[in-house]
């Protein structure tokens, strides 16, 4: 277990040492979203009767920050290690592929949670969020971070260059997170987009996460946890098989 713990420690230390860029920057970004969208849309959008738009937006932004930063952590760490070549130090060691996966995922979840808590902390200046069902909040935050952290491993292992990773991020991760109901309820969408959103696993992560705050959501949190859990299981299985095969890492 020492090998796994060391790799986890290294991955956490890596983002912690550059926390201005890995934690402060995404918190600021989320804050800007909140300022602009809530200012522009406050009087035009009412998603749930009892909740102001700004309050509605907060959990979505927190979750989006968790997801994007979890992805960024594992993917950027891996691509950097691959491009600079220092991944060899991990590959030479007796750390197993499952330990490798777990260490990268846990560090990604941790980075996501730290950024998420940061976003939540600064939004307290606007509105005190309700915490109707905190357990759901934790479950969706951790599962969502783990899913995106795993996707980050896939992207980081697959990409040979930074622009390939950027493409993965811009064409897969950003659309999935933006078209998931961060800024709106999918019930406000035209039917086609509404049914399309139901195929986006990120929608369930955000909807379930938001349920934890308000106790209301577009779909049942049980459905959301089922979809999120199943997505995690599938992705984790896929990633473990990929790592076990040595794809791109042990050619």
């Amino acid at each position: 277990m020492t090998g796994f713990r060391t790799l986890l420690y290294k991955e956490v230390l890596r983002f912690w040492k550059v926390s201005f860029q890995t934690i402060a920057a995404p918190v600021l970004t989320a804050l800007l979203y909140l300022l602009i969208f809530s200012h522009v849309l406050e009087d035009h959008v009412q998603v749930y009767d009892s909740i102001s738009y700004a309050a509605f937006l907060v959990p979505g932004l927190v979750m989006m920050s968790i997801l994007q930063n979890a992805f960024a952590n594992s993917s950027s760490s891996l691509i950097q290690s691959k491009v600079t070549g220092n991944i060899v130090f991990v590959l030479l060691s007796p750390i197993s592929y499952a330990e490798f996966w777990l260490a990268y995922v846990l560090a990604a979840v941790l980075r996501g949670l730290v950024v998420g808590l940061g976003v939540l902390a600064v939004t307290l200046f606007w509105d005190t969020p309700l915490l109707v069902a905190p357990l759901w909040i934790v479950v969706f935050a951790v599962l969502g971070g783990a899913i995106l952290g795993t996707l980050g491993i896939i992207a980081g292992v697959w990409a040979d260059k930074y622009d390939q990773l950027a493409a993965f991020q811009n064409f897969i991760i950003v659309p999935l997170t933006f078209l998931s109901g961060v800024f709106y309820s999918i019930h406000s969408l035209p039917p086609f987009w509404q049914s399309l959103s139901h195929w986006n696993p990120v929608f369930y992560m955000i909807d379930g996460f938001r349920y934890g705050f308000f106790g209301i959501s577009d779909v049942s949190p049980w459905l959301s946890v089922l979809v999120t859990g199943a997505s995690f299981a599938v992705l984790a299985g896929l990633t473990l098989a990929m790592l076990k095969s040595g794809y791109k890492l042990r050619s």
Partner: peptide, 29 residues
């Protein structure tokens, strides 16, 4: 097995001692 790779690779985030302590940890020591 201890391997000294041909390429001059390093992890820019860490100091020399951190690098060595982590490498030791990877091997479970």
């Amino acid at each position: 097995l201890g391997v000294v790779p041909q390429e001059l690779v390093f992890d820019p985030f860490f100091t020399v001692r951190e690098t060595l302590r982590m490498q030791s940890g990877y091997y479970g020591i």
